[in-house]
Design a protein around this nucleic acid. Sequence first.
DNA 1: TTTTCGACTATAAAACGGATTTGGTCGAGG
DNA 2: CCTCGACCAAATCCGTTTTATAGTCGAAAA
Lengths: 190, 190
Amino acid sequence: MNEKKERIISAAKELIAQYGFKKTTMDEIAAKARMGKSTMYYYFKNKEDIFAEIVRIDSDLFRQKLIDAIQAAYSPQDKIMQYVRTRMLHLKELSNYYKTLTNEYLDHYFFIEQVREDFYSFENKILSDLIKEGIQQNIFTPCDIDVVVHMIAIAIKGLEYPLFIQKEQDLEKDSKQMIEIIFKGIEVKA
Amino acid sequence: MNEKKERIISAAKELIAQYGFKKTTMDEIAAKARMGKSTMYYYFKNKEDIFAEIVRIDSDLFRQKLIDAIQAAYSPQDKIMQYVRTRMLHLKELSNYYKTLTNEYLDHYFFIEQVREDFYSFENKILSDLIKEGIQQNIFTPCDIDVVVHMIAIAIKGLEYPLFIQKEQDLEKDSKQMIEIIFKGIEVKA
DNA sequence: TTTTCGACTATAAAACGGATTTGGTCGAGG
DNA sequence: CCTCGACCAAATCCGTTTTATAGTCGAAAA
């Protein structure tokens, strides 16, 4: 990526982290990036485009982090565990970094929706593959994979909840215990 | 409860369902309840008090419904299943009925918080007892009950999510499958 | 040609202030 | 013990003006 583009992204990123999306103005970004406002329009179509790029980059880093976490683990169980754990911790970091942004959560910007959807299908693919792998290794019981993945996704949503309402929780512990239960169940084995 | 009080509650309830909390005025309630506005202040301390009472009543009905659902089931598994199922379906009804209110979700009124907390400890008690019962009957594995209850609560939060973002989902099916997994797990039994 | 920017515009948001609404009180009277 | 009309202060609404902001354009620098 162009050095100028990076300056813009970097400036915008800091500002948005501090002030949020709406409150950050193009003038501020230009000042921080040390260039005329108009210049930025040579590199980006518009304001949204800048933020879309930021989100895209962050999203890519996030995915890579998740992939790394999975690859560092061995068993399917551990891979899933590490996936969820890493996901929650990263989300916590994010929600911490973009604190002001959490408030704008409601006015969902369409480009974020796009990234979100893409992320969900990425997540779906990963989890599906891990479940499949586990079944092949006779570790997980043969089952409707889509259902299981959907349930894990729902559980993850539940784990995310405290982040949304800014409630302090031990995400790591909760994640671990949740996945544990999904693996073992709570019924006595026949 | 006093007949007048009921008239007020009933009028307020209809109006709040249609227009939401903030948009419903005391004058409107008074008109619908066929009495002078001042009269209402003989029965209720203030506007919030009226809505608090509505919420309290609804909450009581909700609890009773849940208790009934549990009592109609036999095994601990079925009781938990019916609990979650009934809870989700009722919540869906509610969120449907108070459609406009969902938008006011953010400006959380403190008296709702109170009811919410009370409900959570009610729920916690119910689920704890059911898990305990299951363990005693050698149906569930001995475990940290608080943890299991917390996990079920988290799973429920995840199930609630589509209601919050007004996304269509088959809550009944999802509830069933989620509880199923929490019971059975997905690992092959040793 | 590619890149930069100051001057400019159109539009959206904020500030404002007066009129209206609204939650709540009070004292008279049923 | 109830009911209510008259009343008040504070909040809300609403039309208007001012300001801020995203985005354009053409000239000029590199």
